[in-house]
Amino acid sequence: MATGRRFDGRAAIVTGGGGGLGLAIARRLADEGASVLLADMNIALAEQAAGELAETGATAIASRVDVTNGDSVEAMVTTSMTAFGRIDILVNSAGIGEQVSFLKQRSEDFERIVAVNLTGSYRCVRSVAPAMIAAGQGTVINISSVAGLTGISGRVGYGSSKHGVVGLTRTLAIELAPFGIRVNAVAPGPVDTAMVAQVHTETTRSTYTRNIPLARYGLPEEIAAAAAFLASDDASYITGHTLPVDGGFASTGAMFDPD
């Protein structure tokens, strides 16, 4: 439960906001006072989530977005500016992944993962940057992964895209700093979300858990807390950083085939 309202008067866009980590982050930002646009491919989910946030007294709206489509991203930004008149925070949480060995993965699936996770994040930052530059401030939170910090067998597409997100974060932090815009990333370890439930078998879960020093999967709320910290003025001198929130998994340097 949040203990303060660090985001009163601020507006945020959260992609992938219809569920999972995106919704948890949107909920945390709204709980601390932000007006939030929940953007998702599944507009029904986004509208349901926005409605639930609105019932708590938060200002929340929904927008359909396909982060692989430039016109769709621009429409999302226009919707946010029309509704809130500003964009202070962008959280790039939209993402996809799969568990498959390199030799079995189809090239089109690899390209689709990169298009959503990496190019989609780039496209969203590129579209919100003019509003943030005009305001002289802003913060971007990219969702990477421990798979973007170490090699994990069976995650070639996902891991490659998330390594790219770390590189994107560092480069944008340098280029956007003169405009008062901070860019950071969160690198979650295994977290109990619907997407993880679809990808991780019982064998996968037990193998991960044995390799996590805290010996458990994370909670979406724990990732949201880290994202909220990086988005807040409490992190005003932090940019270009990727924060692992993984129960210590990345520190082990574990590389394995969970199945």
Rank of each mutant, 00 (worst) to 15 (best):
T3I: 15
T3M: 10
T3E: 11
G4S: 13
F7N: 03
D8G: 08
R10A: 01
A11Q: 09
V14A: 08
T15E: 13
G16I: 04
G17W: 00
G19E: 13
G20Y: 03
L23A: 00
A24D: 01
E32P: 12
A34W: 02
A46S: 13
Q48D: 13
Q48G: 14
E52M: 10
E55G: 06
E55K: 15
T59S: 06
T59E: 14
R64D: 04
D66C: 11
T68S: 15
G70N: 09
D71F: 10
V73S: 09
E74P: 02
E74H: 01
A75H: 09
M76H: 07
M76I: 11
V77C: 02
T78D: 12
T78V: 14
T79Y: 00
T82K: 11
T82L: 10
I87P: 01
I87M: 13
I89G: 09
V91K: 02
N92A: 09
S93V: 04
S93L: 00
A94D: 06
A94L: 15
G95W: 10
I96F: 05
V100I: 15
F102M: 12
F102Y: 12
E111K: 07
R112C: 03
A115G: 07
V116S: 09
V116D: 04
V116N: 06
S121D: 08
C124L: 14
A129E: 14
I133L: 08
A135C: 12
Q137P: 01
G138T: 14
T139L: 12
T139F: 08
S145E: 12
S145V: 10
V146F: 08
A147W: 03
G148H: 07
T150D: 07
I152R: 05
G157S: 04
G157P: 02
G157D: 01
S160Q: 07
K162L: 06
V165E: 00
G167S: 04
L168M: 15
R170M: 08
A173C: 12
A173R: 03
A173F: 02
E175W: 10
V183C: 13
V183P: 10
N184V: 11
P188L: 11
G189H: 04
T193Q: 05
A194C: 06
M195Q: 14
A197Y: 01
A197M: 02
T201N: 13
E202V: 08
T204N: 14
S206F: 00
T207G: 05
T207Q: 14
T209V: 15
T209I: 15
N211D: 15
L214P: 05
L214W: 07
R216F: 08
R216T: 09
E222P: 06
I223L: 06
A225S: 15
A226I: 05
F229H: 13
S232Y: 07
D233W: 01
D233H: 11
A235N: 10
A235F: 00
S236P: 02
Y237E: 03
I238H: 02
T239M: 07
L243A: 15
L243R: 13
P244A: 11
G247P: 04
G247Q: 03
M255S: 13
D257A: 09
